[in-house]
Design a protein around this nucleic acid. Structure first.
Length: 1191
RNA sequence: GCCCCGAUGGCGGAAUUGGUAGACGCGCUGGUCUCAAACACCAGUGUCUUCACUGGCAUGCCGGUUCGAGUCCGGCUCGGGGUACCA
């Protein structure tokens, strides 16, 4: 007997009404029930196996959801519900990445606190999400902008600050261990991933360091550190951006220009993890494209370092003399001087302190002597510290140089120190000139103000020391200067014809000869000011300048010129390259441009299509392939490239010229943002030394500010916060964390049960150790591929770090990752004529309108002309630039037009609803819509003659779905402020239909345009499904019904396991079609079917399940088991093909052997017909598959 | 430029290991129901040939492997995404 309550209803009409599928009521009812019963609560203590399925953190933007967002959520929700049926304890949480730029930009514009708008946006998101029926455990919801969440983000920051990377153990360790080692042995034995130029010190030295010095040293080791780096500075946003936040030279959010700037910034030593991040990719099941993107981003390359020694130039004294005594001295003289090394050395020994211009020396001497007496306090303070070889080398004061007198000078190092008083600001220009001249004499000049010396003498001395330790300083006097390069092609060493330095390379200013000084300075200045965007736009434009210096080829001893070129990047390798133009495309272009020699050292293989490449000056291209034999290369001659690389590295190492080395493209991540709406960095400054806050004082709550803008001094907004000081006296760090901070560990926070209601006193860790161990990492992570080099790399980095310090047991955040494809929008475009900018004026009732738009397309002119006098423009409308649009059916050559987006809500099958458009039009422009029979102006139609009203046609294009393209389709209805209503799929067809349809569109990972055309198909399917359940009985199912069911079980299970959700929707349709055909209304079949459907269309499943008499939710019902026996067939209808072409079908019992079938087939009349009397060469019988006869 | 992915009817797509190409849905055509429309239901629908039977051609293009290729291999074309001088 059926438990269906309405079967015996006496009134057939009301029965029919009740039987109707009312998705609105059903969906609302079950969404409320799930929420109330906490149906999808995940348990931290469970004997069940766990399954963790996670969606990428959404940023709750003001625009709300569009149909692309739920795509991934629906897929993950199906997975979550399926796994519950399969007996797993499923963790399926949702939360918000709620710090970020858009909310802050909005706050700047409106003055509203970003927390307010963020809260509103979240509310809206939540309402929309709820309407789609997701099975999230909302008690675990997190928001990165909540103090109880970012408390732990700050805590992780402190752990990173208090850690260093030990290369020997290959993991992060606590900084205390490092300090202990420093105290015991200094840093000589420490094998750390740290700053390149870290100096060696002993334990005694360490102990003698001041607190500031110790802090500076540790900063070179800390995993999060304050360091100077070139950053992407965005002046419009007033902040720095990470590499992955910059696209095409403009900021990803907002599209503002970005430039390079050297700044002191909090950074993360992610580079320490480069190799592990690379290796880890092998062990995770992520999409190949993401892995590939990460591999490329990490950019490992094996090669070798190699040192070129500088050939000493003429001594500075000589240069000085040349410059002063013989200004016209020709280049040849310089060459001679360089070649005659012996005499030069003698000169140096005899006269090197005689640096003054001899013509005015006597006068200068007097002046200098008198100057030495009355020193300022600052000058004296500095002098006491550097005199008498206190810094290990002799300094002189008030020493005449050329026509100047230097404050302090170290002649051996060619270093001048100048001390400026308060007048400095006014005399800036003079000082610069003076510096330039001193530079051109070969001296380096560093300047300090009196104030600096008096207030911070330590850093002054450090700066002097650092400058002096630069290897190039004093070259030609006593120091041995070297340029180190990194190369992956040491085999081409004999093809080196020049060396190129990055413009930012520290040696550039020091090695440049006087003759080239101006040219080099100009070039560097230009390179510096070129924005990142220009640099990218001009990738193929060669630029560079000769420094005048030469290095010696380490094997041939040849003189090799040193150039500066911005194709060399300062941040990669050593910032210098050995240029092998014949075998490197970039070097080749450079050499061609500046007419430098292109010696060929590799002969491509005989059969190579690139044979002609890389040969001398006539060649069009370099030969970059790693194949061929070495020529003109001394000991490498005759070797294959790969062998030559090995051999070359050996030789280089033997001669102590360099070492085999691995370089990474990956850079440390800049962490500080000059913004308000982010996590405060838990650091305060005491005597200029940064200190981490004690962990037990977290969170450091984001303070209120009066404005969300930088201060007048250019400090970040947090500098505005009143009385915001640690212990009321120490300044906090004013920058905040970037968007990726909170999202780099959120998957761990979801492991806290009931995180929304946890009491602060119970909140003792990022999550319970037991919970962390139980949930481990994410089993399935679904999100967009745009996070490939940002979030997905950083979250792996932090996971590995937390693992190193034993906070968590896993070292990857997610085992499997799927990128859902983008759902593109169908944009509607209006044609706008381009051509020249001819002005068109309309004189009408004293209103003079300038149409700032091209109208010189004759046809348009002709069309508009007769109606212009008729057009009435209301006086209340402000005059402005007028736009002209041309209907698509009038457009002959689309190249004559620009295209302008129009909101798709006003367009139906390429026809613009002009009246509706003008009703809600938001701008005040006067717009002309030119159609075949007339012209629409601001909602009124002006006919060219006939009375016919004609329509305005648009052009459709598939594009990214975005607000700016006005092609956004929302899943949920909404009403705009102006009263305009937009219907969403959920409201017109129901959430179950939306869920099924989004899956039905195509493979999850593929991009596809959104088109509602097919939605009636899935909607109809649900109605058909509903109908199946009208007269359910308890009869025993027959063979056909069981076959249909089990075929479906098999298919659905396989489909879910390979994330092929589109094909399962098809299978459901087939199943329902077949059961309808069979008139099946048997309980055992239909109940199983409901469970199969429930992950996809949960509301209808719950409702029917309930109507079948079940009290419990369907959510935890065991998934139906597939039984092979129902699908076993006794016979198979073989397709019989001849030479691979199917001709007819023949059924045979499956027990028949291949030989029997062969015999049977040959006896058939049809076979003989297709054989046309010939004897078959071969007969192939594949059991249960096919028969093929080869003729 | 480099890397990754893709290309199948009018459209979205299916074909999981090489074995009946075009499942399922949309759209379209015809029909039933209806005063009519919508809904629902039934039938047809790759293309060319033919009244029909039949046959030919068909998975971006060219070639190969195989009894048999949408699927494997080589070369190209086009489209989408990522990336940007990484030595």
């Amino acid at each position: 007997m059926s438990k269906f309550p309405l079967v015996n209803c006496p009134n057939p009409l009301s029965l029919w009404e009740k039987m109707e599928y009312h998705f609105r009521d059903i969906e609302k009812k079950w969404q409320e029930r799930w929420d109330k019963d906490k149906t999808f609560k995940a348990e931290n203590n469970s004997s069940k196996p766990k399954y963790y399925v996670l969606d990428m953190f959404p940023y709750p933007s003001g625009a709300g959801l569009h149909v692309g967002h739920p795509l991934g959520y629906i897929a993950s929700d199906i997975m979550a519900r399926y796994k519950r049926h399969k007996g797993f304890n499923v963790l399926h949480p949702m939360g918000y990445d709620s710090f970020g730029l858009p909310a802050e930009q909005y706050a700047i514009q409106t003055g509203q606190h970003p927390a307010t708008t963020t809260y509103q946006n979240i509310q809206r998101y939540r309402e929309q999400l709820d309407k789609i029926g997701f099975s999230f455990d909302w008690d675990r919801e997190v928001r990165t902008s909540n103090p109880d969440y970012y408390k732990w983000t700050q805590w992780i920051f402190i752990q990173l600050f208090n850690s260093w990377y030990n290369k020997t153990s290959d993991k992060a360790e606590k900084i205390e261990n490092l300090i202990a080692e420093f105290e015991k042995n200094g840093n000589a034995k420490v094998n750390a991933h740290c700053e390149e130029n870290t100096k060696t010190f002993s334990a005694t030295e360490w102990k003698s360091f001041s607190e500031k010095e110790k802090s500076d040293v540790l900063m070179q080791y800390r995993i999060t550190y304050l360091g100077e780096a070139y950053v992407n500075w965005c002046p419009a946003l007033g902040t720095v951006l990470a590499n992955d936040e910059v696209k095409d030279g403009v900021s990803e959010r907002g599209g503002h220009p970005v430039e390079r700037k050297l700044m002191k910034q909090w950074s993360m030593r992610i580079t320490a993890y480069a190799q592990r991040l690379l290796d880890g990719l092998e062990k995770i099941d992520w999409s190949e494209s993401i892995k590939e993107t990460q591999r490329y981003w990490i950019g490992r390359s094996e090669g070798t370092s190699l040192t070129f020694s500088l050939i000493p130039g003429p001594s500075p004294r000589e240069k000085g003399e040349e410059a002063n005594l013989d200004r016209d001295s020709s280049r040849e003289k310089g060459e001679e001087a360089r070649n005659d090394e012996n005499s030069e050395k003698e000169n140096k020994k005899k006269y090197f302190w005689q640096t003054a211009d001899p013509t005015i020396y006597e006068a200068l001497k007097q002046f200098a002597r008198s100057n030495r007496q009355p020193q300022t306090v600052a000058e004296d303070k500095l002098w006491q510290l550097i005199r008498n070889k206190n810094l290990g080398i002799k300094f002189r004061r008030q020493h005449p140089i050329g026509t100047y007198i230097a404050d302090f000078i170290c002649l051996e190092k060619m270093l001048i120190i100048e001390v400026d008083g308060e007048i400095h600001e006014q005399t800036k220009e003079q000082d610069e000139k003076r510096t330039n001249i001193l530079n051109s004499l070969g001296f380096q000049v560093i300047r300090f103000s009196n104030k600096e010396i008096l207030n911070n003498i330590d850093s002054v001395i450090t700066k002097i020391k650092n400058t002096m330790s630069s290897p190039l300083l004093g070259r030609g006097v006593g120091g041995e200067a070297e340029i180190s390069v990194f190369t992956t092609r040491p085999d081409t060493i004999f093809g080196v014809s020049f060396v190129t330095l990055a413009p930012e390379h520290e040696l550039v200013s020091q090695i440049t000869t006087a003759e080239q000084k101006n040219a080099v300075d100009d070039y560097i200045e230009k390179a510096k000011n070129r924005s990142e965007r220009e640099r990218q736009a001009e990738v193929n434009k060669v630029s560079g300048v000769f420094t005048g210096a030469f290095v010696e080829h380490p094997f041939t001893g040849n003189k090799i010129p040193v150039w500066v070129g911005d194709y060399v990047l300062a941040g990669y390798g050593t910032g210098a390259v050995m240029a092998v133009p014949a075998h490197d495309e970039r070097d080749f272009k450079f050499a061609k441009h500046f007419n430098l020699p292109i010696p060929k050292v590799i002969e491509p293989p005989i059969n190579s299509p690139l044979l002609g490449r890389g040969v001398g000056g006539e060649a069009e291209n370099s030969y970059d392939e790693k194949e061929g034999k070495l020529i003109n290369s001394d000991f490498l001659n005759g070797l294959e490239v790969k062998a030559a690389i090995k051999k070359a590295i050996e030789e280089i190492e033997n001669k102590n010229l360099g070492k085999g080395k691995i370089n990474f493209r990956l850079r440390d991540a800049v962490f500080g943002r000059q913004r308000y709406w982010g996590e405060p960095i838990p650091i305060y400054y005491k005597d200029g030394i940064p200190h981490a806050m004690p962990e037990n004082e977290l969170p450091l709550v984001l303070p209120d500010v009066d404005k969300y803008l930088p201060t007048e001094d250019g400090e970040p907004p947090l500098a505005r916060a009143k009385d915001w000081k640690y212990k009321n006296q120490f300044d906090y760090e004013w920058t905040t964390m970037p968007g990726w901070a909170g999202s780099s560990w959120y998957f761990l926070r979801y492991m806290v049960q009931d995180v929304k209601h946890i009491k602060p006193e119970n909140d003792k860790a990022i999550a319970d150790k037991k919970a962390l161990d139980y949930w481990g990492n994410v089993d399935l992570y679904i999100g967009g591929s745009e996070h490939g080099t940002g979030h997905l790399l950083y979250v792996r980095f932090w996971t590995k770090f937390l693992h190193d310090l034993n906070f968590i047991s896993v070292n990857e955040p997610a085992k499997k990752l799927i990128n859902q494809g983008m759902i593109q929008g169908m944009s509607e475009l209006r044609y706008v004529p381009k051509e020249t900018f001819s002005e068109y004026s309309v004189n009408n009732q004293n209103n003079h309108i300038i149409m700032g738009i091209s109208t010189n397309i004759d046809e348009i002119n002709k069309l508009i002309e007769p109606i212009l006098p008729k057009i009435e423009i209301s006086n209340s409308k402000p005059l402005g630039v007028t736009s002209i649009f041309v209907s698509a059916d009038l457009v002959k050559n689309s190249n004559d037009y620009y295209k302008s987006h129009v909101d798709i809500n006003y367009v139906e099958t390429n026809t613009l609803d002009i009246l509706k458009y003008f009703k809600y039009k938001e701008n005040t422009d006067i717009e002309f819509y030119i159609c075949k029979e007339g012209c629409w102006v601001n909602g009124l139609f002006y006919s060219y003659g006939t009375d016919e009203k004609s329509t305005f046609k648009t052009k459709s294009e598939v594009e990214k779905m975005s607000k700016s393209k006005k092609n956004v389709v929302t899943p949920v209805s909404y009403t705009k402020e102006n009263g305009e209503r937009f219907d969403g799929v959920v409201d017109s067809f129901g959430a179950d239909t939306l869920r099924l349809y989004e899956m039905f569109l195509g493979p999850l990972e593929q991009s596809k345009p959104w088109n509602t055309n097919g939605i009636t198909g899935v909607s109809g399917f649900l109605k058909k499904l509903w109908k199946l359940y009208t007269n359910v009985n308890d009869e025993t199912p027959n063979k056909a019904e069981l076959k249909t069911l089990h075929k479906t079980i098999k298919k659905i299970t396989e489909d879910i396991d390979r994330f092929s959700f589109n094909t399962s929707v098809s299978s459901f349709m087939i199943c329902v079609n077949e059961l309808t055909e069979l008139k099946c209304n048997k309980r055992s079949i239909l109940e199983s079917l409901l469970i199969l459907v429930s992950p996809y269309a949960p509301h209808i499943a719950e409702e029917l399940w309930n109507q079948l008499g079940h009290k419990e939710s369907i959510a935890l019902e065991p998934f139906p088991m597939f039984n092979e026996t129902y699908l076993v067939e006794s016979a198979f209808n073989y397709p019989v093909s001849f030479n691979g072409k199917t001709r007819f079908f023949q059924e045979y019992d499956l027990s028949l052997s291949k030989e029997d079938i062969e015999k049977e087939i040959m006896s058939l009349e049809q076979t003989q017909k297709y054989l046309e009397g010939k004897t078959p060469k071969k007969i192939i019988v594949v059991h249960n598959k096919i028969v093929n006869i080869v003729v």
